[in-house]
Every structure is written in C-alpha cells, then in structure tokens.
Design a protein around this nucleic acid. Structure first.
Lengths: 231, 231
DNA sequence: ATATGACCAAAATCGTCATATGGGTCAATC
DNA sequence: GATTGACCCATATGACGATTTTGGTCATAT
C-alpha cells in the first residue's frame, strides 16, 4: 500500500546487500536501515527473497527507463550501435545490475543458484543472434558478416565491460560514457555497410524489439505460471 | 635432468589441476598419473606449488611461442591489431591460461591469493596504456583517440573473451579464429588512421616490446629476488 | 645414480553437539 | 488497522577431539 515506505525498504536492502551481501544482511538490519520494524517489512514483502526479487525488478526497470531516456535524447537513437551503447552504459552505471551480470557471490550469496537462470535469460535476451540477424536483414549490418560471430562479439564486450571491475577498479577506468562512445563508433565503422544503412529501418525494428523486452521484464515480477521450482 | 619425465609430470598435473583443481589433487595423484612415484616428483620440483608455477610458466611460454608462430605466418603480422588478435587467440585456446586469467578458484584453489598479483601483472602488461600510446605516436592509431580509453576497451575485449565461457559454454561459441578475425578487422577499421598507417613502424615497435615481455616472463621462472613473501 | 614407498608431522576432514542466529508469525499495542 | 517486537523453531555456527589425509623426507632397493 504505502509505496514510499516500500521504496525505502528497497533502498535500505540495496545499500546493505551491496555492502555486506544478501547472506550477511538480516531482515532486522533492513528494517533498521529503513527506520521501521521487522514485522513491517513483511507487510510489504512476503519473504526476504521477495525483497531481492523486487529490488532486481526495480533496478532492471530503472535501467530500462534510463536507456530509453538516453535514446530519446539522441537524435540518432534508433541506430543499432547507439542502442547497444546506451544499454551498455545504463547497465554499467547501475551497481546492482553490474553485480547481477557478474554473478557476484559476495552480493547474492546462496540466492545465486536460483538467480542463475534469470541472469542467463537476461544475458541471452539483450544480445541474441536473432537480434543481430534482424538488423542485418534490415541492411544495417554488412551482409557478409556472420551474425553469430557478431552477436558473440557484442556479448563479449558487454560482459567484459560489466565484469572487468574485478580487475580494473572502477575509479581507475576511463569514464563509461567515453568507453560507450568509442564502442559505438567502432561498431559503426566496423559493422555497418557503406553509407551506414537506413536509420528508419533501425528505429522501426527497435520499437518492436523493445516492446517485447519490456513485456517480458514485467512478467518476471509476477510468480512464474508453472516453471518447475523444485530443488 | 630428465626433461621428458619432467614434462610428463607437468602434463599429468595440468590434466588433474584442470579437472579436479589444485586443492583436490594430491602429489600422489600427480605421480600416479605420470606413472612414477611420489618421491620422483620431488626430484624435479621442490614442492607442489613449484609444480603449479612451472606449469604456468610452461603454458605461458607455449602461448608466447604460439603467438609468434601465427605472427610469423601472417604477412601482415606486424600490424598492431593482428598482434592483439593472435594474442587473444593464443590465450583463449590455452585452457590453463583461460583459467588463469579468469581467476578460477575451482582450478587454483588456495593458490589464488598468491597468484593474484602475477595475474594482475600479466593483465596489465599485455595491453597497457603505454603500449597504445606508442602505437599512436607511431601513427598507427588515429591521433584524436584517447589512448587510455582505447587500451581499456582492448582490455575489456580480451578479458571478456577469456572469461565469457562462464556464461556461454565454449562449444556453443563461434570459433575463436572467427572472433579474432572479426575483432582485428573491427579495430583496424575503427582505430587506424586513413590508409592504415605505416606497417614498418608497427613491426619495429613490436619487436622492441616483445623482447621486453619475453625477458620479464623468463624472470618469473626464477625465485623473486626480494619481493616480500609474507602472509 | 635413480627411484621407491614407508614414514612423520602438520594440516585437513569428519562427526558430534551445544549454542546462537535469524526468518517468519502473531498477540499485544498504538 | 497499522505497527511493533517478543517469541518460535529450523538452520547455521563453531568448538572439540578423533581420525584421515597429504606434503615432504629419507633410508633402502634397484
């Protein structure tokens, strides 16, 4: 009901999960950090796991919104490589999403096992071969390139960017915006056909794909209809 | 002395370390797998840790040799992006090096703590800002690009490629050769100046850098002269 | 010379159990 | 009727000693 309180709980949980990890954070800690009692947490969420689920959903949606905002602000937003670029930046700037994609056990603890398929799903969805193939069919990627290899390479870049802070501390890395711009420029020069293809086709295709992605993300919020949940 | 026997021990250790991990592999196991007795292992190596060190050194040198072979076979081998490409392929094809770069605890177990600086060192050396800067100075990378961002992006690609098999099983990935070729092509089109720069400058620069790298790798073989070894 | 495997001390593992913790509930309270 | 926090109980933790494992050595055998 009280949505603002619910957000406060999620804020508290996010802080604590990222700092101490899911396992070491108690429901009491969350309640205290949010300035309410333990029982009140259970007024909003049916379990500790549900808090994490809601948190991931919320941050995922925030990232989505962030990406949309950047795309809307960019006159060349419909361009495939700018979509990829803003997706990259949006994810990389969200600490929870970064932890999510790099499967950080210190953050998700025992939940990781249950979360793994969800991560794999998000991973696959965000840069699938099919996605690339459609852009290629629309004439936005040079026809002689192998879509599987292109998709894989883009996955590699995204995965690398989201996980490299295990090697290079974030504060020693160049600004994400600069890296994203370089990547988009690189892909544009390297993958697009002479002349850059038809931007309108890109926009149209993107709208279709984005619609599907948004709907699937929403569905993650409600309990899976059937999928076996057994150990 | 008996070098062939020593190699057999390393072969055995490599198989077992990769399959069961350093911790779960006993010296007896290694001896048995190599077809000799435990005592004989200590004729060649002063400790179990020394076996791992020797193994990493051997595989590192093999990768080096592999890279050199590919470079020599390629008429355009001196090109920066082909160097990067063959470095990538060489590392990615070596299972131990892949495990090394992705810091797989299942493989290295408790040694990981001690190995960490060695990994970080290898990481930094193989694509440093200085490296890029020199190539840029030699006119092989467009001058308006920020060397730190370029170096970072290349690190991201390398790191991503070496670690992504935690997400995409290796047998579902496109062939490494194809990915390497695409990456080199992408970088060439995206980073090189119009006309591609002077290939001779590239070759000369590379020879200098390779010399340094080889020497440093050899030094890893002998005990560190002083570096504090404390817990 | 070279290689072996019994041997040793140190460390890891196991089994047990007493205690503490923390997720979730609900009667009491505001 | 919204909120609390004392309470319950399944699970986690850690102490402990007994037992096994295992890295490393060395007297002996080949």
């Amino acid at each position: 009901m009280n949505d603002e309180r619910q957000q406060r709980v999620l804020d508290a949980a996010q802080r604590l999960f990222l700092k101490y990890g899911y396992d070491k954070t108690t429901v009491n800690d969350i309640a205290a950090e949010a300035g309410i009692s333990k029982g009140a947490v259970y007024l909003h969420f049916k379990s500790k796991e549900a808090v994490m689920d809601a948190l991931i959903l919320r941050e995922g949606q925030r990232v989505q919104a962030d990406i949309m905002r950047r795309l809307a602000a960019d006159p060349d937003g419909g361009n495939l490589f700018n979509i990829f670029r803003y997706g990259l930046i949006g994810l990389a700037e969200n600490e929870l999403m970064r932890a999510f994609y790099s499967r950080r056990r210190e953050v998700f603890g025992d939940l990781l096992k249950r979360l793994a398929p969800k991560i794999a799903d998000a991973e696959a969805r965000s840069m699938s071969v099919e996605f690339v193939r459609q852009y290629q069919a629309a004439g936005l990627i040079r026809p002689e390139l192998d879509p599987a290899t292109v998709a894989f390479l883009m996955m590699v870049m995204r995965y690398g960017l989201l996980t490299i802070d295990e090697v290079v501390p974030r504060d020693e890395s160049p600004p994400i915006e600069a890296v994203g711009a370089l990547i988009a420029d690189l892909l544009q020069r390297g993958l697009a056909p002479e002349g850059g293809g038809d931007p309108e086709a890109g926009k149209a295709l993107f709208n279709t794909l984005a619609q599907g992605a948004l709907e699937r993300l929403k569905q993650q919020g409600r309990p899976a209809p059937d999928t076996e949940e057994g150990k």
